[in-house]
């Protein structure tokens, strides 16, 4: 059976272009037109634009499945993961810009990796083990199943940077650690395998670049693509850090 030719929308992608490596380059908006296809994501659209229209366009995708956190960008003004944003949910005009705060590599590509590594080094975001020499031939230490689920919940962070891009404090305070870091501290604080105490955590986040810098605007919570409970975690951590700080 012959079906009528489907007519698809003409989408207009307005993309903030700038290559800081080119001495004479100026930031500008460049517009690309593309015919929408069923099930089209921004991953599919941007790949097609690069292959067919402009091979110099820079952006980052890795998993294209919403799990690796590479493709955070400003989509119609809101930090989101491009790979799982379907064009269907947007009007004909789609505005794309790189995430703010992070170092710009070019066009839509920003260096979140460098920022995250710096944050991890500064806040020591790893389990500080009670014992260095464990015998892995022996049965593992038990853990409360509900606690393991709680830790996993916070461990789902993909370090995409959307929370930092959506953060009021981060725009004013260059060294603010961001919700990503506060969530990690909350995660390690929960973990019985980490022997750090609130005194140690206070040293890491008990100041205006840490949990006390948060103005509770909670853009982070609203834009987190993994729906992490950032609001609760930051509030809880702040209470604990206040308690620690007022111990004298």
């Amino acid at each position: 059976m012959a079906s009528a030719p489907q007519s698809h929308r003409k989408l207009r992608f307005h993309i903030l272009r700038y290559n800081p490596a080119k001495a004479d380059d100026e930031p500008r908006i460049q517009t690309y037109e593309l015919e929408e296809a069923p099930g089209m994501t921004l991953f599919i659209a941007l790949t097609e634009i690069r292959e067919k229209q402009d091979p110099s366009l820079q952006f980052d995708f890795v998993c294209r499945a919403g799990i690796c956190g590479s493709c955070g960008m400003m989509i119609n003004g809101r930090p989101s993961l491009a790979c799982r944003s379907v064009t269907q949910s947007f009007p004909d005009d789609i505005w794309l810009a790189p995430l703010p705060v992070f170092e710009l590599i070019g066009d839509l590509s920003v260096n979140t990796g460098k920022w995250m590594r710096g944050m991890s080094e500064k806040l020591e975001t790893w389990v500080h083990m009670k014992q260095e020499e464990l015998d892995f031939k022996r049965i593992e230490a038990p853990m409360d199943p509900a606690l393991a689920e709680e830790i996993y919940e916070l461990d789902r962070c993909i370090e995409c940077g959307c929370c930092v891009a959506g953060c009021g404090t981060a725009r004013m305070r260059e060294d603010f650690v961001g919700a990503v870091a506060l969530n990690k501290i909350a995660r390690f604080r929960l973990d019985p395998r980490d022997d750090r105490t609130d005194e140690d955590f206070y040293e890491l986040v008990g100041d205006d670049n840490g949990v006390f810098g948060c103005m509770s605007l909670l853009g982070c919570h609203d834009v987190c693509p993994k729906q992490l409970p950032l609001q609760t975690q930051i509030a809880f951590l702040r209470r604990k850090m206040v308690a620690q700080g007022t111990k004298g």
């Binding site: 389990v127 083990m129 853990m143 393991a148 996993y152 461990d155 973990d191 395998r193 980490d194």
Partner: peptide
């Protein structure tokens, strides 16, 4: 031991 939250 390194912190993987294995389901229990």
């Amino acid at each position: 031991a390194w912190g993987v939250p294995w389901s229990r």
